[in-house]
Simulated assay, not measured.
Amino acid sequence: MKNHLSIINYHSLNCNGRLVDLNSPKIMGILNLTPDSFSDGGKFNNEKSALQQAEKILKDGGEMIDIGPQSTRPNAEFLSSDEEIRRIGNVINEIKKEFPEALVSLDTFYAETVKFGFNEGIDLVNDISGGQFDEKMFDMVAETKLPYILMHVNPSYETMHDKVNFDDITLNVNQYFAKKTNELLQKGIKDIILDPGFGFGKSVEDQMKMINETQFLGFGKYPVLIGISRKSFIYKPLGKSPLDINEETQKLHLQILKQGAKILRVHDVLEAKKTLMEWESGRV
């Protein structure tokens, strides 16, 4: 029995013909195939270590694995789609073969990388650009019929981390979501997940406001994904490192679960799973 603060919206996704019920929130584990990601760069950028990490994500309670061939931290190296595909190699195929129960999400803003990933067996598209960095993205997602994670971000790769002074962050993000979901629906894309874009061009204050107002994001029309794992708006004000804020992060995860968030995108799957189980038990 959930406590009276909990908000329940019923959502499901069609992932390659497999119906995924989001009535119970899911943990999405991050698998970076990059040498330069901000907290785990170079750890999993070969096939063997990537498979081991995928196994750990699933063992620790993750149901989704988000594969990222390109770092999008500030000042990261900009890669072409060809380079992303080269980095991915056989990883998607091997994960689907070894762990058929896993839902594999591909983190890319390129239509060509999505096409490659779809042929390898991905289940979701996670696009930080909202279709703004590659004009072919929405058409490609429509072609694949895969669920699409729509993130709020500034309109270009060059400006994605530029701080913006928003009048009302929740209102601004919702206006963006309304416009973009309309575009997606016109293309026939119905399985949409909303990501408010923590860590991309927003002040600490605005990001804390989004956490406090998670229940209002998207007006409950679509499932919401929250990715606050190891983000600087948490660790910098505390004077800590990205690897030293687990307790604070789990408190925030609990807060957003109470407000109806459906997917937590995280590095520390085991800790997030404990938080999810605590929330589901109704003890908090």
Results as ranks from 00 to 15, higher is better:
E84D: 03
L270G: 11
M140S: 09
I85V: 11
A142G: 12
L276H: 06
D244G: 13
A54V: 01
G61E: 07
Q70H: 05
S156A: 07
K96D: 07
Y10N: 14
K180L: 06
D206L: 08
Q250R: 14
E84T: 01
V91D: 00
L194S: 11
I92Y: 02
V125Y: 04
I30F: 02
I92M: 08
L13I: 02
I7V: 14
N32A: 00
H253Q: 07
Q175K: 14
T34K: 06
K274D: 14
E120S: 10
G220D: 07
M160N: 01
T113F: 02
K2L: 15
Y157L: 12
V284F: 15
E271Y: 11
S203M: 02
L264C: 08
N75T: 01
N182S: 15
L124R: 07
F177L: 07
D134V: 00
E77N: 00
P223A: 11
N32C: 01
R86A: 08
N154W: 04
I8H: 10
L254E: 13
L146E: 05
K2Y: 14
I92T: 03
T214N: 12
I228E: 10
E47F: 00
G29C: 05
N23Y: 14
V125I: 14
E77I: 05
V224M: 09
F109A: 09
K26F: 12
L238D: 05
F99R: 03
L184W: 09
F44E: 02
D162C: 08
L264V: 06
I192H: 09
N182E: 15
Q186E: 15
K115G: 06
F38K: 01
T159Y: 01
P35L: 00
Q53S: 06
N93S: 14
N212Y: 14
I27K: 03
Q250P: 00
D206G: 07
D127V: 02
L5M: 14
G218P: 09
N3K: 10
I30Q: 04
E94Y: 08
F99N: 06
E83T: 13
I149C: 12
P242V: 03
Q259H: 11
N32V: 03
P242C: 02
E248V: 10
K43I: 00
E183I: 13
K97W: 03
V269H: 10
M277H: 12
L22E: 08
N212D: 15
L252Q: 08
F118K: 12
F133V: 00
N174K: 09
D167H: 06
M210R: 11
L51H: 05
I57G: 03
D127N: 10
E158Y: 01
S39A: 10
Y10W: 08
S6L: 02
K2H: 13
M137T: 09
